[in-house]
Design a protein around this nucleic acid. Structure first.
Lengths: 233, 233
DNA sequence: CAAGAAAAGTGCGTGCACGCAAGTTTGCGT
DNA sequence: ACGCAAACTTGCGTGCACGCACTTTTCTTG
């Protein structure tokens, strides 16, 4: 339905994009990230440097995109796939956790790489913002047209929360003092597993989702104060 | 306590920064934004081009910063200034609205400018993210150490919501079709007043704030069960 | 008040992003 | 099958961000 035959043009385009992504990551891993010139990537992908820049706006973006790929789309799909019975908050959380759990081996190398160079790290964190548009779509479908921008805001908040989680997770290298200083006197789970981090940062948003969700299934006008779900801490 | 005598070094630094900001905005307004070379800004501020780059990482940043100034700090201060009795959500919302309400005349010109060039618009939107760190601090103070990253996530969500509001507000120029397509069939307040937009985008987050807030004054034993203000739509 | 340390300003060189105006490939209607 | 129009690629030129090494200014300490 979405891909009858994609057409040759589109296929070539995707191929080029993938070649570039691939080359970028590979080169960045085998020599250091600083030792990769844009021309190298272009050449490795068999394309002109200028064309490279038609696909990616920065070297970092190219490298990072090899890992992030089309995570955005998959997250949206994963949310849409959950039965409409479950809480929206849970559906989103699980979808996100699921899609950010990659057992790939090349990804591990890449992530390790990201911890070494702040510019790569930043690019990776920025990539998380890409989940907003697709998420907005699926959330909008769930909450209906409650408030004009509700879905947008919720999606954006999720993206922000994910970013926070990733930031807190990508620290193990180098700055042992930064981890210590983040909590003066207490320990804050230096950098537990990513799924845990994600759940932790998404949790505070659950009430907002509940509220948006609630409005929907009681489209008539009664409002009742419902205590927050038993916080198990 | 905060400024004994700021020291001469610091004063000069601020002066330079302001000179750069000023020059950047002024030049951008009088000739078009594209007709402003970095060297021009530097020269107008009486400083070397290289130095300019020590203060700002991009031309857009310099221009935009003339408007955004230290809004971040003021927002945080405004939140902290509210009595602890009011709902946290309200405190934050009002503080944000208040600080984004500028009757300045030069700002108007600038904002108009931002609508014309996407790169400026984007820089302006990105600047909204700067409110996160200070907001995190004040929110953390209110909610205590509920969950490690709760404050961070809430602050980041606010920043995201503000961004959405600004995005929806900075459209009046040119694309009449974009405004129409944003809501297939219904009208979504094409671009009402900024305060309204801000309140609208921040509203969905209120439940999250309430949940975080509740925990806190529950531990103090005093609870203020207040229903959400009658949403009149 | 005299060094010396620390920080800010500067000049230079490099790699890069991107607009523009060709050239080349793909898709489609007749 | 042909040819036109749209999409993609490419080379070139420009302005820019930023690392590095060095000079100048400000702060500190004995």
């Amino acid at each position: 339905m979405t891909t009858p035959p994609p057409g040759l043009r589109e296929r070539k385009k995707q191929a080029t994009r993938e070649a570039l992504r691939d080359a970028a990551l590979r080169l960045a891993v085998e020599r250091g990230p600083d030792q990769v010139r844009v021309d190298d990537i272009a050449e490795a992908a068999g394309v002109s440097p200028r064309t490279y820049n038609n696909y990616f706006a920065s070297r970092e973006q190219a490298i990072v995109s090899a890992v992030t790929a089309d995570r955005e789309t998959r997250i949206a799909a994963a949310v849409a796939a959950r039965p409409t019975g479950v809480r929206l908050a849970d559906a989103v959380t699980e979808a996100v956790v699921e899609q950010y759990t990659n057992p790939g081996e090349r990804e591990q190398q890449a992530l390790l790489l990201f911890t070494t160079q702040t510019t790569l790290r930043d690019a990776f964190l920025d990539a998380a913002a890409d989940i907003e548009p697709p998420l907005t779509a699926v959330i909008a479908e769930r909450v209906g047209d409650t408030g004009a921008h509700t879905a947008r805001v919720l999606a954006a908040s999720v993206a922000a929360a994910v970013r926070v989680a990733l930031e807190g997770w990508l620290v193990p290298a180098g700055n042992a003092e930064a981890t210590a200083s983040s909590s003066p006197g207490g320990l804050v789970v230096p950098s537990g597993s990513l799924p845990d981090q994600l759940r932790a940062t998404l949790a505070p948003l659950a009430p907002a989702f509940d509220a948006a969700d609630k409005r929907r299934d009681r489209s008539a006008g009664e409002r009742f104060e419902k205590a927050a779900p038993p916080a198990k801490t």
